[in-house]
Simulated scan of single mutants.
Amino acid sequence: MAKTQFLGATLRLKYLAGHNEKNEPKFAIKTYRHLNDTHTTTALVAVAKAIASLSSQPLDSIMKQETTELS
């Protein structure tokens, strides 16, 4: 049976930073590292929205990236 071990996670907030000359959206991404495995999805979304409310740029998306070791 395969085993997994959580190594870490990163929270990424993607903001709409404007548009280019072709009117295509440009994005800015802010990364928050060193999350542990006890953070729930609900808590992460609440924190991300609170952080985004401090920005003048509109929030486009919230991403969580996990690193897991498989053995």
Rank of each mutant, 00 (worst) to 15 (best):
A2N: 02
T4D: 01
T4G: 10
Q5P: 01
Q5C: 09
F6K: 03
L7Q: 10
A9G: 14
A9F: 14
L11Q: 03
R12K: 15
R12A: 08
R12T: 14
L13A: 12
L13T: 00
K14S: 07
K14V: 14
L16P: 02
G18S: 03
H19S: 12
H19V: 10
K22E: 08
N23V: 01
P25E: 05
K26Q: 13
K26T: 06
K26N: 10
K26E: 05
F27A: 02
F27M: 02
F27R: 06
A28F: 11
A28T: 04
I29Y: 10
I29L: 12
K30A: 12
K30R: 03
K30S: 12
Y32N: 08
R33P: 07
R33C: 11
R33F: 02
R33Y: 05
R33Q: 15
H34P: 05
H34F: 12
H34V: 01
H34S: 14
L35G: 09
L35H: 08
N36A: 09
N36L: 02
D37K: 14
D37Q: 15
T38N: 10
H39Y: 12
T40Q: 06
T40P: 04
T40K: 03
T41N: 10
T42A: 13
T42R: 05
A43F: 12
L44P: 08
V45R: 14
V45L: 10
V45P: 02
A46I: 00
A46C: 05
A46L: 08
V47R: 07
V47D: 15
V47Y: 13
V47H: 09
V47M: 15
A48Y: 01
K49Q: 12
K49M: 03
A50N: 14
A52Y: 01
A52M: 00
S53G: 04
L54V: 08
S56P: 08
Q57R: 03
Q57N: 06
P58D: 10
L59Q: 00
L59G: 08
S61V: 00
S61C: 03
I62D: 12
M63Q: 13
M63K: 14
M63N: 11
M63H: 15
M63T: 14
Q65L: 12
Q65P: 01
T67R: 07
T67Q: 04
T68G: 00
E69K: 15
E69S: 13
E69L: 15
L70W: 02
L70F: 10
L70I: 11
S71T: 03
S71Y: 09
